[in-house]
Nucleic acid binder design. Structure first.
Lengths: 290, 290
DNA sequence: TTTTGTAAATCGGTTTTATCGATTGATGCT
DNA sequence: AGCATCAATCGATAAAACCGATTTACAAAA
């Protein structure tokens, strides 16, 4: 039994005339007769009565037609669903983001939703390590984070933009008017830094080590909004990429002197996994906003 | 899109391994790969991610699998239904009967239902004319009646048995002990006869005409049980085939003298229409009871 | 790192099957 | 009776499914 035969059968049932049905199906009457016969042979029961040159449905044909219709309908619905998926009328995107890139994602989200309101989202904030773990388990379609030291070659990497590392400080601080600051100076300040898992922290520690400097880390914390609150108090300083604190008030950021004191925002996805069209469109919007 | 491809896809989805799926389907791995690819081409979207030598379902594959399953399931259910039909686990029989043959039908019905309780029935009592009309409109599968004068050659006729025409009278009647009676004698009696449409009435009138006799018809009535009530009163006589009054009390029947004073019970169906298995079995039981 | 084994894709050839056009036979209509 | 029509059938052809062998890409083991 094949869908083709069911389609032929249903058209023949509709018109109760093999010749017209065959024309309507763009096949020859000969073919239709044969395919109906073949179906009847497989079902071991006639679907049509052949009364002279007239045909009518048998009881079996009547009963079977209900299922034939449902079978073909479900196949068509499946096809339609995939078309919808392609037209972004359905589907879900799962995106992982490091907190530093929050702003760019929310902007994109708003713009995307205006155009394609039916697409659902799952946004996961977390450390690079956590996000990459989830990406590897296919729980995320794509992640936005900063460049990693170690790259895996089943990942696909796309750079978005670079952003300077900056010392973040309260507007009340003495340093607020400085245009730049050295690592050495920073090493004398009392710092509140993001927790270990954050790639920024890793990056900062590497930078201090290379210069044989030891930062005074007073606080480690795994929540960036809280971290910024602490900085606004004026008691501590922190180090973040500039983009992280876009749109934040009561704080200023001072670029750090030295080579490679920038970070590159990246998109990471799994190479071989089929990229959803919705994801592609989302990324196009995101890139246009950068 | 064909059911074959959907079946292949579902098995591949189940095992997430083309080689094993192909073995399970008794086709080569090569064929499975090709058919899946062909399906993906038609749907214009990949159903599987090929990650190295591993495969996983894409979003599209996940969504589509629901419909693929429903489509194949419905086709299978249709097949199962026809099997049930063949095993007499479902189906409906429509039978037309002239009242005279009521007894044989009810007996068959009881016996048939013991063996095949799931088959539904529609029993239609009526005149031969009415029944043949319905048969021609495919509203009945078969009719039980007496032989017709005019036969149509798209009908199939089967004889069941013959039954003598009898004068029916109350047990109080003077005639109750008679072994036979002539038409001439009957023509002197006050008769209550079935209405015009009944073949018996037609038959009786023909018989009287041939002998140049004129019956005294006091009452014409289109309900046989009422007719019999009238006869039981002793005021009127009627003429019926013997089988009609099987199991009736308070009345006796006296065979009518003369050649051709018998009627033949028949099964009539449409030649070219597929005979339901349930009907065949029903008739086998009926014939065994004759 | 190299080797080995495994799984899917691909290629070329074969078999199967769907399809067609022409014809036949049966039937309904004029 | 003759004509037109419709489904079935036949023989031939084109299309498609299928297979085995090979290739490619990977993963696991040495």
């Amino acid at each position: 039994m094949e869908l083709r035969q069911l389609r032929y059968f249903l058209k023949a049932k509709e018109l109760l005339n093999f010749t017209e049905a065959a024309n309507s199906l763009n096949i020859s009457q000969s073919t239709l007769s044969q395919q109906i016969k073949q179906l009847e042979d497989e079902l071991q029961i006639p679907l049509f009565n052949r009364i002279g040159k007239r045909i009518t449905l048998t009881e079996a044909g009547e009963l079977f037609s209900v299922y034939a219709l449902q079978s073909t309908s479900k196949a068509n619905e499946g096809l339609q669903l995939l078309k919808d998926l392609n037209n972004l009328n359905t589907g879900k995107i799962a995106i992982g983001v490091t907190y530093a890139l929050r702003d760019i994602v929310t902007q994109t989200l708003v713009k995307f939703n205006d155009q394609y309101p039916k697409i659902e989202f799952e946004i996961v904030f977390g450390t690079s390590k956590e996000l990459i773990e989830k990406l590897n388990h296919f729980e995320l379609d794509i992640i936005l984070t900063f460049e990693e030291i170690l790259t895996e070659n089943h990942f696909k990497y796309q750079t978005l933009f670079t952003s300077p590392m900056t010392l973040v400080t309260s507007t009340n601080s003495d340093l607020k008017s400085r245009k730049s600051i050295s690592l050495k100076e920073i090493s004398k300040l009392s710092l509140a830094l993001p927790a270990k898992g954050y790639s920024t922290t890793q990056f900062i520690n590497d930078a201090f080590n290379k210069n044989n400097l030891h930062p005074k880390v007073a606080i480690e914390i795994n929540d960036i909004p809280t971290l910024l609150e602490l900085v606004k108090s004026g008691k501590w300083y922190t180090i973040l990429t500039q983009t992280t604190i876009k749109n934040e008030k009561e704080i200023v950021c001072i670029p750090i002197e030295g080579k490679n004191m920038t970070r590159t925002a990246m998109l990471i996805s799994i190479k071989e996994v089929y990229e959803k069209k919705a994801v592609k469109v989302f990324l196009d919007i995101l890139k246009s906003l950068v």
